[in-house]
């Protein structure tokens, strides 16, 4: 146990802190695993996928404030069904990708970084949960709500950007 702790500490010290990958993987969930340099125009496919995703968000009323209220008041199964079935499909897909060592269409081997636990997942998770029940939206739905015509949500989005910035500014002083 002691030895393990020692190893962990020394390995922590050795960790480079300022390389690009370290900074990116430190916190962001969307670490871009791809090391290929792609032209900007190759990003259009993600835009198309986003459009499809936004339509699903609006049509399944996942972005509806009322549906989120119903979820937290246990008045409707809808959101639990959406998230639950999405996770089941996700688990099966990731398992298949790992099993067959699938490659992306650009030929890269697909690689998933494991998540490191830190206390932020508890404190930050609770704070986000409080905000989620107020705005009725997590970050994705904010974009869809604006697109669907709730223009005042632009203010909510800017405020969320400000929240992210304040976290980045003071993260050293927060327990992790």
């Amino acid at each position: 146990m002691l030895v393990k702790e020692k190893v962990r500490k020394t390995s922590l010290k050795k960790e480079p802190v300022d390389t690009d990958y370290e900074v990116r993987s430190q916190n962001a969930m969307c670490v871009n695993e791809s090391t290929l340099d792609r032209p900007l125009v190759s990003n259009i496919k993600y835009g198309v996928l986003g459009i499809f995703f936004g339509i699903v968000f609006v049509k399944a009323e996942i972005v509806s404030w009322f549906r989120i209220q119903e979820m937290f008041k246990l008045q409707s199964f809808h959101m639990y069904g959406v998230i639950g079935s999405a996770v089941v499909v996700g688990i099966i897909s990731v398992a298949l990708i790992k099993k067959y060592n699938a490659r992306s269409i650009e030929g890269e081997k697909i690689h998933l970084e494991p998540k490191q636990f830190h206390k932020g997942q508890i404190y930050g998770g609770l704070i986000f949960g409080l905000g989620w029940a107020i705005t009725g939206a997590c970050p994705g739905p904010l974009y869809a709500q604006i697109g669907a015509g709730a223009t005042v949500i632009l203010v909510t989005l800017l405020s969320a950007v400000a929240g992210t910035w304040v976290y980045g500014r003071f993260m050293n002083r927060l327990p992790h």
Binding site: A28, K115, Q121, L126, T135, V155, T156, A162
Partner: peptide
């Protein structure tokens, strides 16, 4: 609108994801 949004942005980044 404003405080709720701030908590969403701050909390998700602190938690490392949404």
């Amino acid at each position: 609108i404003v405080v709720g949004g701030f908590m969403v942005g701050f909390g998700t980044r602190y938690a490392g994801g949404c």
